[in-house]
């Protein structure tokens, strides 16, 4: 098992495509950081229009913590794509390359292979999230400095003292990892169905985009199904920047994501075990 995992990781990290994701995370972070460096004040002015009429807010508003939040928020849509890029390719890409049939002529159980594919996607996700943390949090702090953090919700203005932030980010990145692991497991499932890797990547994105729209639509019709969509729970990391922190809701979201993840992996195993390898 360990050897199989080592081999999977070797394959993932030997491949140039894997590093595209790290490049994209770097690029997006840098672009937003640059934009905020030049235009941050007017952006904030726009965002806090309603508030600035009544309150004078001074100090390093556009600080590293704030920028990190902005980047994380906008990466919400892109990161799943980057996860799918690797996780969606794990089975389908090998089928497409023809290496899957060679793999499976070796004495490896298919369940174990699926699990190892999931585990290696998870490790890749961990690496990407750590890189994300470095590029967003640490780099932003380096560029923009520290400060109290402002968090704007649609109807709430939240301010968090700077000494109270780091642990929230640790928790938030941990939660983001869970959310992205769910995406990885979804990609893996779709990957098992396909014999080319573009399909699962596009399908993962399609599902995430459509469900995210449903999760954000404020229509009574959708309000009943929202709690059951994993996309509604993927932004649970934001809960750590609320006041008070809705621990119960976060725990519930985490639970939903874990259930989805386990479900996706289990279905992948069930399906893949019976699949004829035609590629």
């Amino acid at each position: 098992m360990r050897q199989l995992l080592q081999i999977e990781l070797f394959k993932i990290f030997k491949r140039p495509r894997t590093y595209i994701s790290f490049g994209i995370v770097t690029a997006i972070s840098l672009v937003i950081q640059l934009a905020m460096l030049t235009d941050g004040k007017s952006y904030m002015g726009f965002a806090m229009q309603g508030l600035n009429e009544q309150f004078d807010i001074h100090g390093n508003i556009i600080n590293g913590y704030f920028i990190t939040y902005i980047i994380l928020q906008s990466l919400l849509i892109q990161i799943p794509l980057l996860i799918a890029l690797v996780a969606g390719d794990t089975l389908a890409g090998e089928a497409n390359q023809g290496t899957l049939r060679l793999m499976l002529t070796k004495p490896i159980s298919r369940n174990k292979l699926v699990f190892v594919k999931f585990a290696s996607s998870f490790i890749y996700t961990v690496a990407l999230i750590i890189w994300l943390a470095i590029m967003t949090l640490f780099l932003s702090l380096l560029i923009f400095g520290k400060g109290d953090m402002i968090n704007l919700k649609s109807d709430t203005f939240i301010m968090i003292l700077q000494d109270d932030i780091m642990w929230r980010y640790a928790a938030a990145f941990g939660f983001a990892l869970l959310a992205m692991t769910t995406i990885a497991s979804l990609s893996l499932l779709l990957s098992a169905f396909a014999d080319n890797s573009i399909g699962p990547i596009i399908a993962t994105m399609g599902i995430v985009v459509v469900l995210t729209i449903l999760s954000n639509l404020d229509l009574p019709l959708f309000n009943h199904i929202k709690p059951f969509l994993f996309t509604s729970h993927m932004i649970g990391w934001k809960g750590f920047f609320d006041d008070p922190i809705p621990y119960a809701a976060i725990a519930q979201s985490a639970f939903v994501l874990v259930v989805y993840t386990v479900g996706f992996v289990a279905i992948t195993m069930l399906y893949f075990n019976k699949k004829d390898i035609k590629s």
Binding site: G50, E53, T156
Partner: peptide
């Protein structure tokens, strides 16, 4: 006296309704 504060939900992409808090 304080005027209310609102931002489009599409922009903030809230995790939870604040009214629950």
């Amino acid at each position: 006296d304080v005027k209310d504060f609102k931002m489009p939900k599409g922009v903030t992409m809230d995790y939870m309704e604040s009214s629950e808090v």
